[in-house]
Design a protein around this nucleic acid. Structure first.
Lengths: 135, 135
DNA sequence: TTCCTAAACGAGAACGTTTCTTATTTACAT
DNA sequence: ATGTAAATAAGAAACGTTCTCGTTTAGGAA
């Protein structure tokens, strides 16, 4: 009846989208993006699978922006820029985060370092310009 | 009737605690700490004032740990270590975050950088050791 | 095919954190 | 004393996220 099996395995669609996009989406954003193609997709499924992928290390959480958790399908450690205006998260290319820091921190704390997040917070060009406009 | 005016201005007590403590507390932690001294303190008051101080730049948000926002009364930019086990946040002393990075990022994005957060995530010594124990 | 089992899912309830609303209290100036 | 504006307590409400449970699906066995 159906030409493909695409109505199954929404899980794969969720991971595929995370891998491909650069918007560092929230659960809601993933849901909104996939809903047209998978009309019977449930928000719970998105949450469930994001949580699973995160635990398996296939995706990474970037923490929350205004109370909403954001994810990144690119698990290679890199630096992010968060715009407080439009809430966009963008990758910052090629900023060297001294690898020696990890060892230094391990030495200081005596614990175990899993990840290191370097995030710049501010306003993107567009939002910075908006700032001056009339309200 | 009352010897002091200490039952007023809980707002000040909240800020004072943030300034003094190193536990990088959540709203709940602030509330729990101040409740004995201010028995009629309300959790809503803590949230309201934390939010106000944050907006005024008098304190800083460190983001959320397991869904709970954490604050720091020390607004001097510095590096943090978050233990995923006990959820403790500790300051990391004197790790140089190249100041030139800000300018580099400003150049890349064309926007405005407000802050730069460098956070290490892992397990503190105590929690790392617990890991091996029987469950 | 039909049956069976385990995984995946949808729908909505439940949960915990945070924000909002409203009435009360306080501080201070009149 | 009285008026006024800010601060507060209490609890309701909102929001994002997780959980529960009954259903559907995939894939293997008979």
């Amino acid at each position: 009846m159906d030409t493909t099996t695409k109505q199954f395995r929404k899980r794969n669609a969720i991971l595929a989208y995370l891998r491909q996009t650069k918007e560092h989406p929230s659960a809601e954003m993933v849901f909104t993006h996939l809903k047209p193609e998978y009309p019977d997709l449930s928000l719970g499924t998105v949450y469930r699978n994001l949580s699973m992928f995160k635990n398996k290390g296939e995706i990474v959480s970037l923490g929350t922006v205004n109370g909403v958790e954001r994810f990144d399908g690119n698990t290679t450690p890199h630096v992010h820029f968060v715009c407080m205006g439009c809430e966009a998260i963008t990758d910052l290319p090629q900023i060297a985060v001294p690898e020696a820091l990890n060892q230094q921190v391990t030495g200081e704390t005596g614990g175990v370092i899993d990840t290191c997040q370097l995030t710049f917070v501010g306003k993107c060009q567009a939002c910075a310009n908006k700032k001056g406009e009339a309200v």
